[in-house]
Amino acid sequence: MRPPVDGTRLARFTRAERWVHRCTAGLVLLCVATAACLYLPQLAVLVGRRRLVTTVHEWAGLLLPVPLLLGLGSRALRRDLGRLNRFAPYDREWLRAVLWRGYHRPAGKFNAGQKLYAGWIAGAVVVMLGSGLLMWFTGLAPLAWRTGATFVHDWLALAVGVVVLGHLWMAMRDPEARRGMRTGSVDRRWAAREHPHWQPAEGAEPTGEEPADDVEPTGEQPTGDAEPTAAEPTGGQPVEGDGPAGDGQPSRSRSSR
C-alpha cells in the first residue's frame, strides 16, 4: 500500500521504515513485558514459569537490533538516521524553547527531542544487549563483570522503561504524528507547523525513496566533526520556496505545546 499522497498529504515514512518501527516496537514491548514478569514480585507470583519467560526475554533482546540492521538496506531509512544524527542551529533553538517554555520551536523532519531520544535509546539498547549477554553467558567474563552487568542492566532497564513511556506519551498526544508512522504520510499543514525546516526531496514523494545518485548519508565524512556549525549561513531561518508548507508561512511554529 502506498502512502496516500496528494495536495494535502506528504510522504513521511517509507514502508521499510514503518516495518522497522513496528518490529522494533513489538520486540521492545516483549522485552518490557517479560522483564516485568521476572522482576516485579506481584507479576512473578502471577506468571511464574521462570525459565520460559527468561528464554523469551533473552531472545527478544537479542533480536531487538535486527529490524534496524535489516532496515539499513533502505536508503530512506539511512537518510533519516543521518537526519536524526545531525543537529542544526534550529535544534538548539528548539531545546532552548522547551527549556524556557518558549513558543517558537523550529524543527527539521525530526525535532531536537526526537533526535536526542534516538541517540539515547540507540546507546541504551547497545548497553542492555551487552550487559544482557554477560548475564546470559555466565562463562563469558569474570564474576565481577557479571555483577556489574546485572547492576547496569537493572538500573538502565528502569530508565529505558521511563523513557519509552515518555515516547508513547508524546505519540499519544499527537494523532498526526501517529498517522505518519501508521500510514506513511502526514498532513501538509501539520508538517509546516511542526517541522518547518523539513524539505522532502522533490519528485520522490510517492515512496520517499531517494534517487540513486543521492549522497550516502552516513555522517562519516572526515570533516563532519570539525564542521563549524556557526558557519551555516541562515541559522534557524526557514528557507524560501521548497519547504513543505504550500499553504502557510513555515516560520510560524505552533504555540500550543
Binding site: R79, D80, R83, N85, G119, G219, E227, T234
Partner: peptide, 15 residues
C-alpha cells in the same frame, strides 16, 4: 539551511 543530513550539522546523535 536545510534538513538534508549530508549538509553537516553537529553529529549530536552519535555523541
Amino acid at each position: 539551511m536545510n534538513d538534508n543530513p549530508d549538509t553537516r550539522g553537529t553529529p549530536v546523535g552519535r555523541r
